[in-house]
Amino acid sequence: MPENSTKKQVPVYAEPSYQTEWQGGRLEHIHIAPEASYEMEELQEANCVAGKGIEGDRYYKGVGTYSPKPDVRDITLIEAEALEHLVLNQPPMQDEPIVLKPVDHRRNLTVRGVPLNHLVGKYFTVGEVIFKGGRLNFPCRYLEEILGLPVYLPLYNRSGLNCSIIRGGTIRPGDAINPLDPSIVKTL
């Protein structure tokens, strides 16, 4: 092989980029479940605790279905738009549209106008609280079983984002969601 082709090139996408332009997202719903398999309950106000989760939620208490698995799971988010696409039967992977209500998807926050798939490793604010995108959420058969709805395939790649809470505080439906420059986080 010629010398120059073995020269290590820096791939364009190797470093997290903060160039995704977005703003003006909104928090629509907050839900928690007291224990694994318990039905989700809607909150009008929630206390986010840094490094732990939403007060009262199963992952805050460490008793969630996936709590024994090591990963960032303080709080989970899903896009309202993804739920709307299921109603439109997009992608058309099942016989009929699926109505997956915010109370049923088992993620904590339903958000609108927030490109969750772009936020892995990035910081953003929900009201006064700072989140950092962890890993993309993966749909699970457990959700299919508990709901009796074939949501596994249609949620593939848009099942939401698992986040850590960097700075805690109170959140409420209607709170603005915006990107946060990581240099600001370093000064906190």
Binding site: E35, S37, Y38, E39, Y142, E145, I146, L147, G148
Partner: peptide, 8 residues
């Protein structure tokens, strides 16, 4: 057998 939702 599948998991089931628990309701209050």
């Amino acid at each position: 057998m599948s998991a089931r939702m628990i309701m209050k």
